[in-house]
Each structure stands twice: as C-alpha cells, then as structure tokens.
Simulated assay, not measured.
Amino acid sequence: MLEILAGVLGFIIIASLGWVFVGGEDSSTQALKRAEGMGVGRNISTRKTAAQANTPEARRKVIELQLKEAERRERKARMTMAAKLKHAGLAMKIRTFWIISGVLGTLAFLIPLVFGLNLLLAAGISIVFGLGLPRWVVGFIGKRRMKKFSSEFANAVDVIVRGIRSGLPVHDCFKIIGKEAPAPLGPEFRRLVENMSVGLTLPQSLDKMYERMPTPELKFFTIVIAIQQKTGGNLGEALSNLTTVLRARRMMAEKIKALSSEAMASAGIIGALPPVVMTLVFITTPAYMGLLFTDPRGQVMLLGAAIWMSAGVFVMKKMIAFKF
C-alpha cells in the first residue's frame, strides 16, 4: 500500500515538474505577456491616432481651433487703451495718456464758460475733447499704422519664401526684412528678431508681435507657422500659398472699396450737410444763428443736434463698413 502511494506521489511530482518546465508558465511570464500585449495595443492605438490626425478633417479642426484662439486674442488685444497705444506705436504710458486727456477735458470745460456758454454745453464739449478726441486720435494713428503694415506684409512673406528656397534660415530672413522693409514692418520684424535672440521661441515672439499689430495677415502667418511646426511639411510652399491668399484678399478689399464708394460719398454728404448749411447761414446772417449760441434753449438744441448727428454718422459708418 505504501509502495502504491509512493508511486502515485512520485508520478504527480514528476508530471508537475514537467508541466512547469515544458508546458506551463509562471506568473511573471504571464505578466510579461500581458504587458507586451498592452504595449502592442498602445502602439496600435497611437498609430490609429496619428493616422486620424493626418486626415483632412483633423487638419480642418486644428485650423478652426487656431482661428478661434487667434480671434479671441485679437478681441482681447483691441479692448484696452494700453493695447491701442501699442497698436499706434506710441511709447507713452497709459497714465500719461489719461493725464493729457484730463487736461484737454478741463480746458474744454473752462474755455466755453469763459465765453459765457451754458454749463451743460460746456460739459458736452469737455466730454468730447477729454474722452472722445484723444481716443479717436490714437485709434486713427493705430489704424493707419496697421494699414501700412498689412500693405507690405505680403512682400515680406515673399522675401521669406525666396530665402527658404535659396537655403537661408528663417531667422536670417527675418533679419533681412527688419533691415530692408519700411516702417512699421521693418521695426516690428527687428523686435521679433530681438525677442528670439533673448530666448523666446518663434510662436512666442509672433504672439508678442501680434499683440502690438493685430492684423489678419499676421494672424494667418502665425497660424501657418504653428501648424507647420506641429505637423511638418514644406514651409516655403505653405508661405507661398499664403502670399497668394493675402494678395487675393487685398484685391477683394479694393473691389469692395470701389463698389461701396458711392455709399461712402453719400454718407459723407449727408453727414456734412447740416454743419455746412449752419456755417453758411451764420456767415450770411449772424443775428439769425446767434440765438442758438447765446440763448440757453438754443444751446440745449445745439447739444441735442450734435448728439443726434453723431448717432446718425455712427449708424451710417456701420452700414458701409464691410467685413470680409
């Protein structure tokens, strides 16, 4: 009995050893295979994700996100008065601007009182010269500066395209534009090169440049550079296509300006007609128009007329200002 039991136990032990060394797997081996399987799954998932990212739909979504982010930055950049001073290229601080505005407003309030005008009319003139005029001047300078920048930007991109095709680095192309391009394009690219020289990356330097010059052309350029750095590709070809788009947009803008010139002329005539007629009547018959300036009721009427005329000019400007 003991011999039979010993034989059975010996068979079980030998069979177990054979299963372990030949057909069996320990927990570490199984864990290794599971890890390898998970790694293979991750590699397959990564390859699928990369393949999906290279599809036209994925690239379109990336471009839409870039456009939305750029539009959000543009709205934020245009809101504050400090940003408008940057757009105009003025080196003054925001505190200096408000001091100048306060001085102008105070003088515009005191001078009409000295000449005997109504207090309400003097307050209206003070608001116009203290708040409206300085902001309008800064906005006018900024728009003119951005217009000059946009008109020369396509030529600057052409310089970059030719430099890349001839083997020059992009940084050297920026230096050439900074030296050769007229203001404000040249100084802005010089500041771009300086920012890159102190350690900022190209996207960061372009973002700072966009804060100073929030134009659609620079926005498109920033998006092309960002997409090219993320996905790769031929930068020269991409920028060449960008110059074609920029010139097509400029031609469209000129066409829109030509088609809307009649509406702009009509709006200018309608807006200038009341002041011109009032001036002519005042020159021919000063006593007839003098009551509007000497009588308090006439002064209130003049203030109301100015407010209504301003509202009308604003509405007409919105009607003929086409966005594309």
Score class of each variant (00 low, 15 high):
Ser240Leu: 08
Leu200Lys: 09
Met213Leu: 15
Thr294Asp: 05
Ala6Glu: 09
Gln299Gly: 08
Met316His: 02
Ala154Gly: 12
Pro134Asn: 05
Cys173His: 02
Thr49Gln: 06
Ile160Ser: 01
Glu152Cys: 01
Lys147Glu: 12
Met278Pro: 00
Arg250His: 02
Gly268Glu: 11
Ala58Cys: 06
Gly186Lys: 12
Ala82Thr: 06
Ala82Cys: 01
Gln228Arg: 05
Pro203Cys: 12
Lys230Met: 11
Arg60Tyr: 12
Arg191Lys: 13
Glu237Tyr: 08
Thr106Asp: 03
Gly142Asn: 02
Glu194Thr: 07
Gln52Leu: 14
Leu259Thr: 00
Ala183Leu: 12
Leu2Gln: 08
Arg95Thr: 09
Phe322Gly: 01
Met264His: 12
Pro56Gln: 07
His87Phe: 13
Leu206Met: 14
Val224Arg: 04
Leu104Cys: 13
Gly298Cys: 10
Ile223Cys: 07
Gln66Val: 08
Arg250Ile: 00
Ala183Lys: 15
Glu3Arg: 05
Glu69His: 14
Gln299Asn: 09
Val170Ala: 07
Thr231Asp: 07
Arg144Asn: 07
Glu254Pro: 01
Ile44Gln: 08
Leu9Trp: 02
Pro112Trp: 08
Ala181Gly: 06
Ala35Gly: 00
Ala306Gly: 14
Thr201Asp: 05
Val315Arg: 05
Leu5Gln: 05
Pro275Tyr: 07
Arg190Cys: 09
Ile94Ala: 10
Val281Cys: 06
Leu65Ala: 14
Val281Asp: 04
Ile13Arg: 01
Ile164His: 06
Pro274Gln: 08
Ser240Tyr: 09
Gly199Glu: 09
Phe282Ile: 07
Met146Asp: 00
Lys318Trp: 05
Pro214Thr: 03
Glu262Asp: 02
Pro216Met: 10
Gly105Asp: 07
Glu36Ile: 04
Arg73Asn: 12
Trp308Gly: 13
Leu65Met: 13
Val224Glu: 03
Leu110Met: 14
Ala253Trp: 00
Thr49Asp: 03
Lys147Val: 08
Met146Gly: 00
Ile14Ser: 00
Leu119Asp: 03
Ala238Trp: 06
Met264Cys: 04
Ile270Ser: 02
Gln229Lys: 13
Glu3Trp: 01
Met1Val: 07
Pro216Tyr: 14
Ser266Trp: 03
Val138His: 01
Arg144Glu: 05
Phe11Trp: 13
Thr49Ile: 10
Glu25Ala: 02
Lys68Glu: 13
Ala265Tyr: 12
Arg34Val: 01
Asp207Ile: 05
Lys230Arg: 15
Val300Cys: 12
Leu292Gln: 05
Ser197Tyr: 10
Ala248Phe: 04
Ala123His: 13
Arg72Val: 06
Gln66Asn: 11
Lys93Glu: 13
Ser101Cys: 13
Val20Pro: 00
Glu217Ala: 11
Lys179Asp: 11
Trp19Ala: 00
Ala123Met: 15
Ala122Lys: 13
Lys148Cys: 01
Gly39Ile: 15
Asp207Lys: 14
Glu188Tyr: 12
Pro203Val: 08
Lys148Asp: 04
Ala263Met: 08
Ile63Asn: 09
